[in-house]
Amino acid sequence: MSTLPLLHPSVRVEVAELTGRNLRKIMREPTLVFFSLAMPVIMLTLFSQVFRSVSQSSDFPAGVSYIDYLLPAVLCTTLAQSATTSSTAIATDLEEGMVDRFRSMPIHAWTVLLARNLSDVVRGMLQSLVMLVLGLAVFGFRFHGTLLEAVGTLLVALPLSFALNWLFIWIGVLVHKPETTQIAGMLVTFPLMFASSAYVPIASLPGWLQVVAKVNPLSYTVDAARGLALGHPDAGAFWKSLLVATVLACVSVAGATTAYRRIDR
Rank of each mutant, 00 (worst) to 15 (best):
S82G: 14
G236S: 13
P201N: 03
I202G: 05
L71T: 12
R261W: 06
A254G: 09
P178G: 02
W170D: 07
G145N: 01
V253Y: 11
S128A: 06
R261E: 12
I107E: 05
L205P: 05
G145W: 11
L23N: 01
V121W: 00
F162T: 14
V175R: 09
V247A: 02
P40G: 12
A73Y: 02
T181A: 09
V156C: 02
E29C: 04
N216F: 05
A109I: 08
G231L: 05
T85P: 00
G145D: 02
L243S: 15
V41W: 02
R12C: 04
S57M: 10
G185R: 05
S55H: 03
L192I: 08
Y199P: 01
V15D: 07
V11M: 03
V50M: 14
L23D: 00
L230G: 01
I202W: 07
V64N: 06
H8D: 13
G97Q: 02
W208E: 06
P9C: 11
F51P: 02
I26C: 08
P30W: 11
F60G: 09
G207K: 01
S36F: 01
L132D: 03
S57V: 06
L218T: 09
T180V: 14
L167M: 14
L243C: 12
M193Q: 09
L70E: 03
V54T: 15
A89P: 00
A163V: 13
L126Y: 02
T31D: 10
S204F: 02
A237C: 12
S55E: 14
E29V: 15
L209Q: 04
V138W: 13
D120V: 10
K240Q: 14
I171R: 00
L94P: 07
V173Y: 06
G63F: 06
L37N: 03
P159A: 05
T85H: 12
T31H: 11
K240Y: 13
R261Y: 07
V212I: 04
T146I: 08
T153Q: 00
S53K: 07
L44E: 07
A195L: 08
H144M: 04
H232V: 11
T45N: 08
V13C: 02
R262N: 14
L158K: 00
S57T: 15
A115S: 15
I67L: 05
V138R: 02
P106T: 12
L158M: 10
D100C: 08
L158G: 01
S57W: 06
V112F: 11
V222N: 09
G255R: 12
M125L: 14
L71S: 11
V151F: 15
P233N: 02
Q210E: 07
S65G: 05
N22W: 08
T246D: 03
A213V: 03
L174R: 15
P106I: 11
V112E: 10
V175H: 04
I171C: 00
I263Y: 05
V251D: 00
A89I: 05
A224V: 03
R123V: 11
K177Q: 13
M186V: 06
T221K: 01
A198F: 09
D120R: 11
S82T: 14
G97E: 01
S65Q: 06
V13R: 15
K177N: 15
I169L: 06
S241M: 09
A163M: 12
E95M: 14
A198K: 07
T92H: 13
T3W: 08
V175A: 13
L160H: 00
R226Y: 03
E149A: 04
S252F: 12
E14F: 09
A224Y: 03
T85S: 14
G255F: 10
